[in-house]
Design a protein around this nucleic acid. Structure first.
Lengths: 339, 339
DNA sequence: TTTGGCACTCACCCTGTCCGAGTGCCAGCG
DNA sequence: CGCTGGCACTCGGACAGGGTGAGTGCCAAA
């Protein structure tokens, strides 16, 4: 049974530990927080909290530090999301407004997040499959060589080379381009496969059909390929603020951060809507067992087209971080909607 | 005056220090290398080398470590470039051959370099201005809105939105597209400005001229913009092998690595042809004063279109690193030439 | 249920000692 | 003249021991 006061004690422990990075004892707690009770009482409460697994002591006769479970409780029940200050909001606006293209938007976002939270920021590029098609272009590079260019509503551009089985005339090309666009522009990429299914059959020339099939195959392939889910990270220098026991701590984190696959899986595991906080061992990946990940989806409309977040030590300022992440995601969504 | 043997001693010191990371003394030297002289003699030589500034001792009664000047001499006169082993070459081939597009080539290269050298790898995207034009495409997104797409011979694709002063008809568009391409395809981007100078005047409609001017302005602008010199880095986890005095050491390095501007300047300072090695304080940037940078240009033809390199502690295996960097650069050049 | 008191524990710091690798110097030898 | 062996010296690093203080658990009293 956790009384109101015990929760209050936990909150105080988390706050102090996050601030000082040092195990916090009963006496220091009563001095820094107006709990209205004596250290002895706090000690009793701590004993209970420890029994329940919310806090632990690194060694006997040291203060307590929160466990992953303790942070979890803190995040779920004790802490809100701290809204940003007005100057901070203004800074976000100023910083993001100067972006010229999608790369720039993502780049600025990642730097902004890293700076705001003083942690490692991760921003996923808007996903292809959730965006809508703005335009499909076909360019003839050589008689039997085409370039396929996809342009999304979020400004993302994707290109592929296509080697045709047979030369493809300019008129056929224009024809295909027109038909393709009339079918898919404005539609979601996810729906594209069905929309173009019967396209080859509508061409008369046999060779053309083959070429069209090849083009479509490339198109569909580029939609499926998971590795096209790119992302950008930044603020790795903030890892140096991790703790005192550096090398062994940050090595696996840096390694994990370099594996885009790992990060994408990490973001993928997050909830589709709303903010997700994964604490310590809640992260599947080994190297990230002493980090927390705060992530949220962002998008130009109501729906999320990608995710962004930050990676930091479990001992992080959750309310502040969550506030920053949420605010940045919203503004980025706005920016994307405008462009 | 540096006799042959003194140089030999310096070489031995560098090799041992790079291997062990510990100051190397006279006795250990004579044991590990067949110098044919006694420790006492080596001591005398060391005294001279120290006087000349090639080596130093961290504190009295410790062994010697090479100074930046010592490494410089080592690189310039004592060490060759160590060619890669056949398996290593094969690995490079296998790894790079699977690349599907430019992003992939650069990504694979950076991972390959990082793995091969066990250091931080930096790869610059092929520069626009040094590449040649493969194709210029104009897409009509809206009546008065175009998208300009540039495709280089190295596979790089660059796009820009263009807001036209007036609606631009499909025929005019096709016209412009054709004229533009006929003038610039196969030419170097650097030459584009002169080649398109008089293009607006060749259009009859006044509004069209304005639009053409706008398009060209955007085109030229995209060529000039320095910030388009993108690059990719990888292997930052290798920084953890830096030394024992971590945090203070790698912090500034991580920060420098995040500043693309800094890195670009770093690569920019390298010689146009041949390999460049910058040791310790030879690097202008503050945070990199205890790192060495090995860089080299790479390109599809004889000429370099961009640079790549690695960043590591001054105490690095120069011959091996230089060998890896050179080999990777060559293969990447080949790959680009083929695509 | 809270509180003050009390004995106990242990990480940390400071100190002093010892050890050994490494040095510089010097006199002797080829 | 250059190389060598010997010798005294220096000093960082590892190790041991004592003191300190923050923090704990437990208990009896309010």
């Amino acid at each position: 049974m956790l009384s109101e006061r015990r929760l209050e004690v936990l909150r105080a422990i988390v706050q102090d530990y996050v601030g000082t990075e040092e195990p916090v004892g009963s006496k220091a707690l009563t001095e820094r927080h107006k709990l209205g009770v004596s250290p002895a009482t706090v000690r009793n409460d701590m004993a209970v909290l420890e029994e329940e697994g919310f806090i632990a002591q690194p060694h006997t006769s040291a203060g307590r530090i929160p466990t992953d479970k303790g942070y979890r409780l803190f995040v779920d029940r004790l802490a809100g999301v701290k809204p940003l200050s007005t100057p901070e909001r203004r800074a976000i606006h100023n910083f993001l407004d100067g972006a010229v293209d999608l790369d720039d938007v993502v780049g600025r976002t990642v730097r902004l997040l890293a700076q705001l939270t003083r942690q490692v920021a991760v921003v996923q590029y808007p996903s292809l499959t959730r965006s809508t098609v703005r335009h499909v272009e076909l360019l003839s590079l050589a008689p039997a060589r085409l370039m396929l260019v996809l342009i999304t509503d979020t400004g993302r551009v994707e290109q592929r080379l296509v080697d045709c089985p047979a030369p493809f005339g300019e008129t056929s090309l224009a024809d295909l381009r027109a038909r393709l666009n009339s079918r898919v522009v404005g539609r979601r990429f996810a729906d594209v496969p069905q929309l173009v299914q019967d396209l080859p059959e509508s061409f008369e020339e046999v060779e053309d059909r083959a070429t069209v099939s090849t083009v479509l195959a490339t198109l569909l392939e580029s939609l499926v390929e998971e590795h096209e889910e790119r992302l950008m990270i930044g603020g790795t220098a903030n890892l140096t603020r991790f703790g005192h026991d550096f090398p062994l701590m940050i090595r696996p984190v840096l390694e994990a951060l370099e594996e885009q696959v790992v990060l994408l899986k990490l973001l993928g595991e997050a909830k589709e809507s709303g903010m997700t906080v994964r604490i310590g061992h809640e992260n599947a990946h080994e190297g990230l067992s002493s980090t927390s990940v705060v992530s949220v989806g962002y998008g130009s409309g109501g729906e999320a087209v990608a995710k962004l977040g930050v990676v930091g030590p479990t001992r992080m300022d959750y309310p502040g971080t969550m506030g920053a992440v949420r605010a940045v995601a919203r503004y980025v969504g706005q920016i994307l909607a405008e462009s």
